[in-house]
């Protein structure tokens, strides 16, 4: 039903975080983050302390979903890249492998050309990691960590 379950393990998370950290530096950007197409934040790097990353993640996914809807109407597969230019901040949004979204926020210390170039390389690396992750998730015999929770566990969550 629908998309396969999204799962993140420590090993792949560390690989993803390494790519994100490096992209942040190499693109001279302020913030880099990765969101899945349903709006769940996967990894982030940079000046995120005062940033509402949960909301940004949800809105990014909404944005990609809306753009994907427009693409469909135009019989395009996807619009994989988006760029929004502001007075101080700019956002570059890139769909990676039609599965996750790579977002780079940058200011005048960087340029669209540099960001595009660095994003392209990061995309190739992320694609490899996410494909491996997906294979791992789909390996039979991997039980959900929730298989053993009891009805009582669930009830306890709601005992105010």
């Amino acid at each position: 039903m629908g998309d396969p379950q999204m799962v993140m393990y420590e090993e792949e998370f560390n690989q993803i975080q390494t790519v994100v950290d490096r992209l942040l530096k190499e693109a001279n950007s302020k913030v880099v983050f990765i969101v899945d197409k349903n709006g769940q934040l996967i990894a982030a790097s940079g000046e995120i302390d005062n940033l509402d990353t949960t909301s940004l993640a949800s809105l990014t996914a909404g944005n990609i979903a809306a753009t994907g809807g427009m693409a469909k109407l135009l019989k395009e597969n996807e619009f994989a890249t988006q760029f929004h230019e502001g007075e101080n901040a700019n956002i570059h949004i890139q769909l990676v492998g039609n599965r996750v979204i790579l977002v780079v926020i940058f200011d005048s210390k960087s340029s669209l050309g540099l960001v595009r170039l660095r994003v392209k390389r990061a995309c190739d690396e992320l694609n490899v990691i996410f494909e491996a992750l997906l294979r791992k998730v789909n390996t039979p015999g991997r039980d959900s960590p929730f298989a053993e929770i009891t009805d009582e566990d669930i009830d306890n969550l709601f005992n105010d």
Partner: peptide, 9 residues
């Protein structure tokens, strides 16, 4: 689909 993050638990 739900998203299970073992890293962030």
């Amino acid at each position: 689909m739900s998203f299970i993050n073992y890293m962030a638990r």
